[in-house]
């Protein structure tokens, strides 16, 4: 009886090993379609796009020197960086506070609040940018309200400013930040905060020395999401910034689709890719300094 059982167990063990081998094959097989798609549709086009920028008659880096010498182009780059960094900064603060409050809530309310925070993501970027057009416009809600109360005599021009672009972008990206941070903050054990408190840490040192470092990985992921999103955004600066507030995204579109300067557009694209990668690297280094556990 006993022998029979061990034999059966042995037989059950053997195919398990084979299954594992198959798994290895299957793993390759299953990741192949996605890998091929990414290489064909993303890696090759990006490489080709960037390659064209080095093929100019005036020298391989001529388009880049031209870009960095042009005051107008540098102003666009500077403005884009500024808007993206300010947006990221505001989104970090607003998102962190909101996420912190949500993370403390009891289960049911928490789910409702998360759904509420994420709800705007269900509509398109263009629709959400349009909403701000209605709010901030000459005949918009704010101007009408202020005029009817009599606080201002004539409508304020809030649209087509850097402020209007930033406001709309913060609104666009805060849900991403909240979503990222709620998960991270929920993952911080209550015991750690209690341990810090029992050791004499007041609320602010507890926040700075325990909560913030432990939330760092989430803050970085959120910041990267918001920065890359706002740095490369097109619809929002197009709708709310107009010609005066041209950013890299809108500038690239203009180069490619209005002046048909494909090499110029590719150069802009290459610079955007490099800056994005650079910022991501800087941010992850900052995270590691705050929390050596962070990736």
């Amino acid at each position: 009886m006993v022998e029979l059982r061990t034999e059966r167990r042995y037989q059950r063990g053997a195919p398990a090993l084979k299954e594992y081998e198959m798994n290895k094959l299957a793993r390759w097989g299953l990741t192949m379609p996605a890998t091929i798609a990414v290489v064909l549709l993303l890696v090759i086009p990006v490489v080709l796009t960037i390659a064209t920028t080095f093929g100019e008659a005036a020298g391989p880096f001529s388009t880049y020197t031209a870009f960095f010498k042009s005051g107008f182009r540098m102003a666009v780059l500077y403005r884009t960086l500024q808007v993206a960094l300010i947006t990221t900064g505001i989104a970090l603060v607003v998102g962190f506070i909101t996420a912190y409050v949500i993370a403390q809530m009891p289960g049911r309310l928490k789910s409702i609040m998360i759904v509420a925070a994420v709800f705007p993501l269900l509509t398109g970027v263009v629709v959400r940018s349009f909403a701000w057009l209605i709010i901030l416009g000459k005949n918009g809600i704010i101007n009408n309200a202020l005029m009817s109360v009599g606080l201002i005599g004539e409508p304020l021009s809030m649209l087509y400013t850097q402020g209007s672009v930033i406001v709309a972008m913060v609104y666009l990206f805060v849900p991403l930040m909240i979503l990222t941070l709620v998960g991270v903050l929920e993952g911080i054990p209550r015991d750690l905060i209690e341990a810090a408190t029992s050791l004499g840490a007041r609320p602010i040192p507890t926040f700075l020395q325990v909560i913030l470092p432990l939330a760092a990985p989430g803050l970085i992921v959120g910041a990267v999401l918001v920065f890359t999103g706002s740095f490369t955004s097109y619809a929002t600066p197009q709708l709310l910034g107009g010609e005066k507030q041209m950013m890299m995204g809108t500038f690239l579109y203009q180069r490619a689709m209005v002046t048909f300067d494909w090499v110029g557009a590719s150069t802009i694209a290459a610079i955007m890719v490099i800056i994005t990668i650079g910022v991501v690297l800087i941010m992850s280094r900052m995270a590691r300094r705050l929390n050596p556990m962070a990736v």
Partner: peptide, 11 residues
């Protein structure tokens, strides 16, 4: 205070 799950600061 000594906690059940140690509650050491992981960072």
């Amino acid at each position: 205070l000594v906690f059940q799950n140690y509650a050491l600061f992981p960072h």
